[in-house]
Nucleic acid binder design. Sequence first.
DNA 1: GATATATTCAAACAGTCGTTTTAAACTGTC
DNA 2: GACAGTTTAAAACGACTGTTTGAATATATC
Lengths: 223, 223
Amino acid sequence: MVMPQDNKTDSNANKGVRDRLLDAAEELFCEHGFEGASIRDIAASANCNIASVNYYFGGKEKLYEEVWRRHLIPMREARIASIENVMSQSEGQPRLEELLRAFADTFVGPMIKKSARQLGILMAREWIDRRLPANMFLDDVIRPTMTAMSNALVKVCPGLDESKVPLVVLSIAGQLVQLAHIKTMFEQISDSGLPIFNLAEAIDHIVKFSAAGIRAYAEDKSE
Amino acid sequence: MVMPQDNKTDSNANKGVRDRLLDAAEELFCEHGFEGASIRDIAASANCNIASVNYYFGGKEKLYEEVWRRHLIPMREARIASIENVMSQSEGQPRLEELLRAFADTFVGPMIKKSARQLGILMAREWIDRRLPANMFLDDVIRPTMTAMSNALVKVCPGLDESKVPLVVLSIAGQLVQLAHIKTMFEQISDSGLPIFNLAEAIDHIVKFSAAGIRAYAEDKSE
DNA sequence: GATATATTCAAACAGTCGTTTTAAACTGTC
DNA sequence: GACAGTTTAAAACGACTGTTTGAATATATC
């Protein structure tokens, strides 16, 4: 007769094996990659048997997919909600900078915030080493975010050609991803000799830089 | 009595085992990552014995480092030369757009040109999964390129605060890296449903976008 | 308490991994 | 041809991989 361990207060121990496995897998997949993280390490980190991975998920690959499924929809919802939130302020006509900052915050948040940074690195890995169904990312996150951002941008920035939006989003996202990479790099190398790196300042820069870049297109229209 | 196989015309076969190993390793490390590419596959692809890797390089890790050593210095030289080349034109006062385009071309070249694209993907992998000595990249490529670009930028764009240059370079490099990623993604997924992607147009965009972003700082100075 | 289901466990499976070993073959020199 | 040094070859090493097995244990239902 054993309690289903719901009387402990430890945040990990009172979860079921399935959830502990997902948490451990996320951490280790993030740190060492899909091939670098072994089932034995994951099971050990989750305090359960090796066979549990196959029992609950049916294999390492399925486990990896489940790790992602937990995050994809919340990710999309957070981004879209953040965009819609800004658009509902300032009587539906917020400044371009406000929209950009909102996008930057939700985009770079999961990449930098200690709690969710794993997800960002995991994303960078998946970006290079595609192991998910090819269009899971595209369908569940990228495309919906893109259209929401597209609508918002043309509304906030009249004169901006809608066909230019994908390139603009590429520019913004590229800067933010690079920012996350650089930040983790600076944390690994302490004495880089490069100027010290301030996150808030960097985001301020990206917002300002991008706003100017976008307005370069909007002004084109008038000529 | 065997000829040292210098009478063949095949570009691979007339190289020595060491060079064939480096070529094969570069291709497979790029495609499957450091852990994903096995010594057996590399040796098979180079048409030589497994033990040759240890004989010539002393281990898999050393082989990986040698793959990089072939490229780091040429990479740096190409970037710096490209910058200096632009700066020597137009009587030492080229337009900002010219400088940006030159930087974009040499930066994105190794990421997209069929012949050298491997290097770009390999770079993205190394960026996430650091296996090289921590500051090899920083010392041999990033820092020298950064200072060259910094000098060029302040010369071409008077009024630009030198302290802002690292952030500006982050913005440009971020856009270019993202461009390379997106491009490889579009090649993997044929029917993405997203607008079709034109490389030249994308680079034009990045140059224009970034020029506007930079000028936003230069104009700040006057207020 | 007996039964059926759900979960855990240690052990073993068949592969692959990077590396080492040992012998063979080649190369150039005398 | 005999010798040295260099390079290749096949086989084996131990360690690790993801997965499967079958028995043991826990949980729930009657």
